[in-house]
Amino acid sequence: MSNLPKNDTEFNLQQILLLMNYLTKWLIHSGVGYTEFSAALKPVFYQQAVNELERIEKKDTISAISLLSGLHRKDITMFKDATNEGKLITQADVSEPFSIPARVVGLWVAEDWPEQMPFYNLKQTSFVELVKKVSMEMHPRSVLNELVRLGIVKQDRRQVTLQKRSFIPDQSTQDLRKFLTQNLQSHINAGLHNILFPEQTSFLEESVRADELTKESVQMLTRYSIELWEKYSEELLKIAVECSALDKGKSDANQTFCLGIYQSDL
């Protein structure tokens, strides 16, 4: 029996799932599970369904949005109500579950539990008691292991300590994640534009690939590509600065130009 996709929709889903392997790696590493992520996706699917109906000039009825997005009619109603009230769709009254570890930390801070306490102790406040106030189903040891992995708590023998510094965002690492997100957005936007709107002007979206290479060859190509990019980006940046100076103050100066490059040794 053939393993080829039955239709274009199924093929597209297979390709997106390949990308999701990397995004899911990022989510899991950050402590975000399937339940929280799928809930957070609801307004995204809602908005994109509305955008598609607008593109094809169809009315954005609850049924039409539900058909395109796969969302429950109740959620769609909530999003529509939020929009009609002038709110962001992310402010809609749609239940979004929080992970047990996140709720444990939230309760720990909100109710001012001791910053340090034993994992388990019948005679005094303990981490086990805290977890059981949130959930009787999740094992406290599993919750502790997850919080330790995320760097939110520290365990020293039988003592569990809340790491207050973990609540202070690291600006440098946040900036790196923002840059990655912006670069991925620009890249996928260019590629999707070329696929979905072939009748329009295409964006530059190409790559150079070479297979069956030794580690030494990959290292040599990496060094050479960095040298080329440093030279090319410097020249392009000079022109971009000149264009920015010429366009400054113009009423139609509302466009953004982005050219990126990446290197990988998959």
Rank of each mutant, 00 (worst) to 15 (best):
residue 186 S to H: 05
residue 228 L to F: 10
residue 186 S to Q: 06
residue 127 F to Y: 03
residue 87 K to I: 10
residue 85 E to D: 15
residue 203 F to G: 00
residue 221 L to C: 14
residue 145 N to E: 15
residue 75 D to W: 01
residue 91 Q to K: 11
residue 208 V to M: 14
residue 150 L to N: 10
residue 49 A to P: 00
residue 155 Q to H: 02
residue 177 R to C: 06
residue 189 N to K: 08
residue 166 S to V: 06
residue 64 A to S: 10
residue 40 A to V: 06
residue 167 F to S: 01
residue 262 Y to E: 10
residue 10 E to G: 09
residue 145 N to Q: 10
residue 81 D to F: 12
residue 84 N to G: 04
residue 152 I to W: 02
residue 94 V to K: 07
residue 115 E to C: 05
residue 171 Q to S: 08
residue 167 F to D: 04
residue 123 K to Y: 12
residue 124 Q to F: 04
residue 210 A to E: 08
residue 232 Y to C: 03
residue 38 S to K: 08
residue 260 G to R: 12
residue 173 T to C: 11
residue 226 I to N: 08
residue 264 S to L: 14
residue 43 P to M: 06
residue 170 D to Y: 12
residue 34 Y to H: 11
residue 250 K to G: 00
residue 258 C to E: 04
residue 48 Q to Y: 14
residue 212 E to R: 11
residue 104 V to E: 05
residue 165 R to G: 06
residue 151 G to Q: 10
residue 151 G to R: 07
residue 97 P to F: 03
residue 161 T to S: 13
residue 11 F to M: 13
residue 147 L to C: 12
residue 56 I to V: 15
residue 160 V to T: 05
residue 20 M to V: 08
residue 26 W to C: 13
residue 159 Q to C: 10
residue 175 D to I: 15
residue 237 L to F: 05
residue 17 L to F: 04
residue 254 N to F: 07
residue 220 M to C: 14
residue 228 L to H: 06
residue 178 K to Y: 14
residue 47 Q to W: 01
residue 67 L to M: 13
residue 117 M to I: 08
residue 216 E to A: 08
residue 65 I to E: 13
residue 138 M to G: 01
residue 126 S to W: 04
residue 66 S to I: 11
residue 178 K to H: 13
residue 163 Q to Y: 09
residue 38 S to W: 02
residue 123 K to D: 13
residue 133 K to T: 03
residue 61 T to M: 04
residue 216 E to V: 11
residue 25 K to D: 12
residue 257 F to V: 05
residue 38 S to D: 08
residue 132 K to S: 02
residue 176 L to M: 12
residue 74 K to G: 08
residue 9 T to P: 02
